[in-house]
Amino acid sequence: MPQDDRTPRPARRDTLRFLTATGAALAAAPLARAQTAPATPATPAAASGAMAMNGSGFYRQKIGDMTLTTVSDGTAPLAALLPTWGANPDRQAEFAATLAEYSVPATNTVNHFNPVLLEIGGKRILIDTGRGGASGQLVANLRRAGIEPDTISVVFITHGHGDHIGGLTTNGKPTFANAQHMINEAEFNFWVTQANPNDAVKNNLIGLKDKFKLLKSGEEIVPGVLTVATPGHTAGHHSVLAQSGGQSALILGDAGGHFLISLKHEGAYVGFDTDGAQAARTRQEIFARITDGKLWVTGYHFPFPAIGHLRRLAPGSFEYEPTVWNWS
């Protein structure tokens, strides 16, 4: 792969540092189980004594003729970023140096959860559903964006981890009652055939099995929106490619890994990747595809609003460039 001849752009790196230095750094182990309590709206600081919410929890980006909205499901505290998000045991000092270079806190930080809503061709497609339960903020933030759960046309699940499927049900009932539910066939079958499935799988995949349409790799979710095989994080993990008006966006789910370590360091893997070596290879392939095609990109655990572009720093090394915030 030829080296990119563009020189680093300090202003964009400064933007990244600014976003992450405020406590928006990524990190956290996956949720093994979903909670069963209903999602609750954020409580005003005056009533709760907590810090007031900084923003409205959603960000809209026009891409071609579609609207892509990242919708925060909130954050979770994390005591230490390493080694979870950069798990290679012999590269810890290397990873720590990158975090320090970008002024990203390595300890006492948070993990972000960012489902994506696509509005295209008169349909609303929700990609992943957050954690659910008392911690989940997806429904509250959808409503802040003026979107009621019963107006979602399709829910697509990238993979079966609890922080992606937990919001599928509320109090034992489908959260998105009118939506067609979709997931890759191999991914679905892996989780629902386990001898001892966890509670998230029991409540949100097995419990809703009659609502799911099982898709093959590369199959359309709706016209212009395709599944893309991105294995490694889980064996059947699938991302989503959305195309409209000559522009494209790749919604990575967890295929993107960490927004610094996974991008900058070829071969880096995440502690909860099912197959770390395969996940690292997949990331290299999709990062090159995004960069070469000048695609928009979202990462489920990237710092909110978790949307932007990638650029190549050197062979096998990439950098995430957050979008310039647009108020309209």
Rank of each mutant, 00 (worst) to 15 (best):
E319D: 11
P2R: 13
A79M: 09
D292F: 00
G267P: 00
G253S: 02
P77D: 03
F272P: 10
F95H: 03
Q247N: 03
A100V: 11
I307C: 06
G74Y: 02
H265W: 06
E220A: 14
P77G: 01
A134R: 13
F287C: 06
G167S: 09
D73T: 06
H233P: 15
E266K: 08
G246C: 02
Q61I: 11
R33M: 14
E119L: 06
P322N: 00
T234G: 04
G121P: 07
G136S: 03
H301L: 10
G224K: 01
P115N: 07
L241R: 07
A249Y: 00
R60T: 11
S239A: 10
G49D: 00
I127L: 10
A80S: 11
A195K: 14
G246E: 01
A46H: 11
G122S: 11
G132S: 08
D210G: 11
R9V: 14
Q194V: 13
F156D: 07
F176K: 05
P305C: 04
V228T: 09
A37F: 13
P305M: 01
A80W: 05
E220I: 01
H301C: 12
H233E: 15
P305I: 00
T291Q: 07
N114I: 04
V110L: 09
N204H: 07
T84N: 12
G86Q: 01
S217N: 14
Y59R: 02
N111V: 13
F259E: 02
R60K: 15
T323D: 04
A42C: 12
P303K: 01
P315L: 05
F156P: 03
A229G: 10
G166R: 05
G122R: 10
G74A: 02
M51H: 10
A268S: 12
N108C: 02
Q243H: 08
Y320L: 06
I152R: 07
F188M: 11
Y269M: 00
E148A: 10
L241W: 03
K211H: 13
V201R: 11
N108G: 06
V139N: 08
P115M: 09
A97W: 08
M51A: 13
S48W: 05
P89K: 06
T107A: 03
D4N: 14
G121E: 04
A277N: 10
I251M: 04
V225N: 03
I221E: 04
G133V: 04
A277F: 09
D199P: 12
N88Y: 07
L118G: 08
S262N: 09
S56F: 11
G316R: 02
R9P: 07
D254I: 00
E220W: 03
A280R: 07
D128N: 15
K202D: 11
T22N: 14
N141D: 01
E219Y: 00
I63F: 05
I206A: 07
I63Y: 02
G256V: 04
V192M: 13
F212Y: 14
D90E: 15
N189S: 12
H258A: 05
G133S: 00
L214H: 00
K202H: 10
F58G: 01
R124Q: 10
E187H: 08
F287K: 00
H301M: 11
T15D: 13
H238P: 09
A52V: 08
A29N: 06
T230F: 05
A177N: 05
T20F: 14
L310S: 07
G256S: 09
T151G: 04
T151C: 06
